[in-house]
Design a protein around this nucleic acid. Structure first.
Lengths: 240, 240
DNA sequence: ATTGACAAGTGTACACCGTACACCTAGATT
DNA sequence: AATCTAGGTGTACGGTGTACACTTGTCAAT
């Protein structure tokens, strides 16, 4: 609650902030690679002593979470056209673009053990596009798994946002989910209903999801094959 | 070239070997998690001093590569039935099973910057199944990208096996590829021909591959949607 | 049996990492 | 002026990977 003069402060010396730490870390990783991002190195880059960072970030894990949060939060959110396939496509390509912009983002994102708020928001909005397009909750559920594995590697831990045994945060999240992420909540409810054996936790049959995605791809390829599909790359003549 | 008595040696004391180090590391990671696998911890587990490991493994990266090599090499290689879709499905599920057996395998595999021989062999055999099924080289190429992203996260670096600037190993690999991995070589050749701008390197349009996979999924979902597809989970009555 | 070579296990040491903890300090609040 | 407090500092500890020099155990050849 400081911010010396609101806007355009000179910010001499250090004057860190969580945002500056996160942005600094992102820039550092963009330039030097994520593997050489260290608390010490980042501190030096920011003209500060290493321990100063810990006033804005609980530890390195939190730093990485924050970096992902920023990147995912920057995913372009275009207005929908109402055609679900187009809108979904656009949204996913936007995510892909943001992740490609930071080469380290995908690996870091996949190394997180639970979803950050921005990730959940993104997934929720994507889910909403399918549902708005009239797809069943069931089908939407499975295609989210399929796509999720593609956009980033969450897959089986979509709804298992409780890494170890943090039952308190789990309950907090269960209560907060429906009102904040309505579309995800709808899917989670349906999945829990279909498989009552796991009232808490994923409620998803990982093997089923994997095979669903696999068969979707194989059947799609089969169709293309039957149609004598060809990619017709730009440098190739289309006469053949 | 030691191996005291060929088979069934008592192996008192330490008597390491690359294989024992690798197996030990795999067991250690299976039990304690990959994040707590350290050279020191592994050495202690093997009843040996840390630096002893370095006589069988060039560094920790090499250790991780070796672990992946073992796991991928253990993927079940069933006889094909001649039906490409079935055979591909079977092969991929076998890979999935092996990776699931070692929870750390997927993350480690995706953290590798280049393909290990066993990975290349697996991909080559998979490619061969598509080609044997009559799919075009073109279509096979793209579906390999699509599936690759699913089985593990190689995607864009399939043919970019040269992480930094190791031109010598690149040349070695380029010469060795055709005779050892004929199916991959065929795809690589076709891709390089279609895009002559990059005589060395990927030769693949990452964005195209991503969109190909995305559209394959979206079109497949569209089809399922039109058919009023439902997953019909076991606990659900099929009457509805 | 002695020697010598060589593969393999050892011990020490170093640079780097994340971060706990006590401290100081400058600005705001009272 | 006294106090509080958010935030930057300094030191220190235990952990990591691994370079380098060493000892040792095993074999082939003498």
């Amino acid at each position: 609650m400081r911010t010396p003069s609101g806007a355009g402060g000179p910010a001499r010396r250090a004057t860190l902030s969580r945002d500056r730490v996160l942005r600094g870390a992102i820039a550092y990783a963009d330039v030097n690679g994520i593997e050489s991002l260290s608390m010490r190195g980042l501190a030096q880059e920011l003209g500060v002593v290493p321990m100063a960072l810990y006033k804005h970030v609980v530890n390195k894990e939190d730093l990485l979470d924050g970096m992902i949060e920023v990147v995912v939060g920057e995913i372009d959110q275009a207005q929908g056209t109402g055609q679900w396939k187009h809108d979904v496509r656009q949204r996913i390509l936007a995510a892909h673009k943001s992740l490609l912009f930071h080469p380290w983002a995908r690996a870091v994102l996949e190394s997180r053990s639970s979803m950050t708020p921005a990730m959940l928001d993104y997934l929720d909005s994507l889910t909403g596009l399918f549902l708005a397009g009239g797809l069943s909750v069931d089908l939407t559920h499975h295609v989210m798994h399929t796509l999720g594995n593609r956009m980033w590697g969450f897959s089986q831990e979509l709804f298992a946002a409780t890494p170890k045994s943090d039952t308190e945060s789990l309950n907090t999240q269960r209560n907060a989910l429906p009102r904040q992420r309505p579309h995800l909540a709808e899917i989670a409810k349906a999945a829990a209903h279909a498989d009552p054996s796991s009232t808490v936790g994923p409620g998803c049959d990982d093997q089923f999801e994997f095979e669903f995605a696999l068969d979707l791809i194989l059947d799609g390829v089969d169709t293309l094959h039957a149609r004598h599909w060809s990619s017709a790359r730009p440098t190739t003549t289309a006469s053949d």
